[in-house]
Amino acid sequence: MAKNTGDGYRRGAVTDRTQMQRPDGLYQKRNEGNGHFMGVKKDGTPWKGVAKEPDGRDTPRSPESN
Rank of each mutant, 00 (worst) to 15 (best):
A2S: 10
K3M: 07
K3A: 10
K3P: 00
K3L: 10
N4Q: 07
N4K: 02
N4R: 02
T5V: 08
T5Q: 04
T5C: 09
T5I: 04
G6K: 02
G6V: 06
G6L: 06
D7A: 14
D7I: 01
G8R: 07
G8I: 11
G8E: 12
G8V: 08
G8F: 07
G8A: 12
G8N: 11
Y9G: 10
Y9F: 15
R10K: 14
R10D: 10
R10L: 15
R10Y: 04
R10P: 00
R10H: 03
G12R: 06
A13P: 00
T15Y: 10
T15Q: 15
D16I: 02
D16H: 12
D16L: 12
R17D: 07
R17F: 07
R17C: 13
T18L: 09
M20K: 08
M20L: 15
M20C: 06
M20D: 05
M20A: 14
Q21Y: 00
Q21G: 05
R22H: 01
R22C: 05
R22Y: 00
P23G: 11
P23N: 12
P23C: 08
D24L: 02
D24I: 04
D24Y: 01
D24P: 00
G25L: 04
G25T: 01
L26G: 01
L26Q: 11
Y27V: 09
Q28L: 11
K29A: 15
R30I: 10
R30V: 12
R30Y: 04
N31D: 15
N31V: 05
N31I: 06
E32P: 01
E32K: 06
G33T: 13
N34I: 05
N34S: 09
N34A: 10
G35H: 05
G35F: 05
H36R: 13
F37L: 15
F37V: 04
M38C: 12
M38T: 09
G39Y: 03
G39Q: 11
V40M: 08
K41I: 11
K41L: 12
K42S: 13
K42E: 13
K42I: 03
K42P: 04
K42G: 09
D43P: 01
D43Y: 01
D43G: 03
G44E: 05
G44T: 01
T45S: 09
T45A: 12
T45Y: 03
T45E: 13
T45F: 02
T45Q: 12
P46N: 07
P46L: 07
P46C: 04
W47C: 09
K48Q: 13
K48G: 05
K48H: 08
K48A: 14
V50Y: 00
V50H: 00
V50M: 03
A51T: 02
A51G: 00
A51N: 06
A51D: 11
K52P: 00
K52A: 15
E53Q: 14
E53D: 15
E53S: 11
E53C: 03
E53R: 03
P54V: 09
P54K: 06
P54S: 14
P54M: 07
D55Q: 06
R57K: 13
R57A: 12
D58I: 01
D58Y: 05
D58S: 14
T59I: 01
P60L: 05
P60C: 06
P60F: 05
P60G: 06
R61H: 08
R61C: 06
S62M: 09
S62T: 08
P63F: 04
P63D: 09
P63C: 11
P63I: 11
E64Q: 09
S65M: 10
S65T: 12
S65W: 02
S65C: 10
N66W: 05
